[in-house]
């Protein structure tokens, strides 16, 4: 009697264990499935957020330069046998030193009708600013173009460049800076509205589409310069 009883008990225990095993297997399957779905859903959410942020429509400032490559995403000065393309960011310290070093020379070459200089004010360094200075400065440069002062304002932005990883000039300070080059109320409104932020996004997309990686990037007659010193630039345009 007692032997049979213990046998029965042992059999029941085996059944219980098998049921528990089955439950565990099921639970693991469902949690695994749930986790994988959660990861996939998170990815899909990312794509939705990105798509909602990206808008192909953009305002183009007046006076931009358009050719097959630039499509209204640049400003140009001068006419001449050679073309210099400059991709630079108002938050980029090397862009600033290149601008400072080449400014007078470029002016001379433009006056001598040697070159056309095409400038792309890309805004790819928002991560190096505490207040998205890169984008706001480039958009403000677009506003300056509305007042016909792109080149003056462009220079003022480089002169007043903030250090990386700090909060750059606020919109109000960008507007003040505009006054120093003769830009008025409509410029201020344009900066406040962020009218050309969509344009800078398009500039960035174009930058990426051309497989460019960093700023400054300078092309002379379509050839990328690894070291844009005056000597190298002079050699590239043949003296």
């Amino acid at each position: 009697m007692s032997k049979r009883y213990s046998q029965k008990q042992a059999a029941a225990k085996v059944v219980r264990e098998q049921l528990a095993k089955e439950r565990r297997r099921r639970r693991q399957l469902w949690t695994a499935l749930g986790a994988v779905v959660a990861i996939a859903v998170a990815g899909a959410a990312g794509w939705l957020v990105y798509s909602s942020q990206e808008d192909d429509r953009y305002n183009t400032p007046p006076g931009t330069y358009s050719d097959d490559q630039s499509k209204g995403l640049a400003f140009a000065v001068g006419e001449g046998p050679h073309t210099i393309e400059v991709f630079s960011d108002y938050q980029c310290p090397i862009c600033r030193s290149v601008e400072t070093a080449t400014r007078d020379t470029f002016d001379q070459w433009v006056a001598a009708k040697k070159v056309k200089i095409i400038q792309y004010p890309v805004a790819v360094l928002d991560n190096y600013s505490k207040n998205e200075y890169s984008t706001r400065a480039a958009a403000a440069a677009g506003c300056a173009a509305e007042g016909g002062k792109f080149h003056e304002y462009n220079h003022a932005l480089y002169v007043n460049q903030p250090a990386e990883n700090t909060a750059g000039p606020s919109d109000a300070e960008l507007i003040e800076m505009g006054k120093t080059v003769g830009l008025g109320d409509s410029f201020g409104q344009c900066v406040k509205d962020g009218k050309y932020k969509t344009w800078t996004k398009q500039l960035n997309r174009n930058f990426e589409n051309r497989k460019l990686r960093g700023t400054p990037t300078i092309f002379v007659d379509g050839k990328q310069m690894t070291d844009p010193s005056i000597a190298n630039l002079t050699a590239a345009i043949g003296g």
Binding site: V41, G43, G46
Partner: peptide, 17 residues
């Protein structure tokens, strides 16, 4: 661009799990 948009969200979800 797709990877750039999707990856940060997936990283956060993997991290939370």
């Amino acid at each position: 661009r797709f990877v750039g948009a999707v990856l940060p969200f997936m990283e956060i979800m993997v991290g939370v799990l």
